[in-house]
């Protein structure tokens, strides 16, 4: 499943970032730490399809659906 489908308060570990090497968004995600084995959690899902808020360690990022869908998670474990 993708990062976008992570429910609020849940965390999971990153399995991969898709999109290939030519994809600037995927490259940026990897650079800021969305890497295999990393734990990410979803902090907030504002309504109306707005970008969601994710925490990666102590840093927080907001990603829109297209971008969050590039991040594939391994499994869903309740935090």
């Amino acid at each position: 499943m993708s990062l976008w489908s992570l429910s609020v308060g849940a965390s999971a570990s990153v399995s991969s970032v898709t999109g290939g090497t030519g994809n600037a968004a995927a490259q940026r995600l990897i650079d800021i730490g969305f890497r295999k084995g990393q734990t990410v959690s979803c902090l907030l899902q504002p309504g109306f399809g707005a970008p969601r808020v994710f925490a990666l360690g102590n840093a927080t990022y907001s990603l829109d659906k297209e971008t969050a869908d590039l991040v594939i998670l391994t499994d869903d474990r309740p935090s």
Binding site: A24, A25, R28, L29, I32, P51, V53, A59, T60, Y61, S62, L63, D64, E66, T67
Partner: peptide, 9 residues
């Protein structure tokens, strides 16, 4: 392609 939205909060 639409540009990705990645913004550090």
């Amino acid at each position: 392609r639409k540009q990705a939205f990645i913004l550090e909060l």
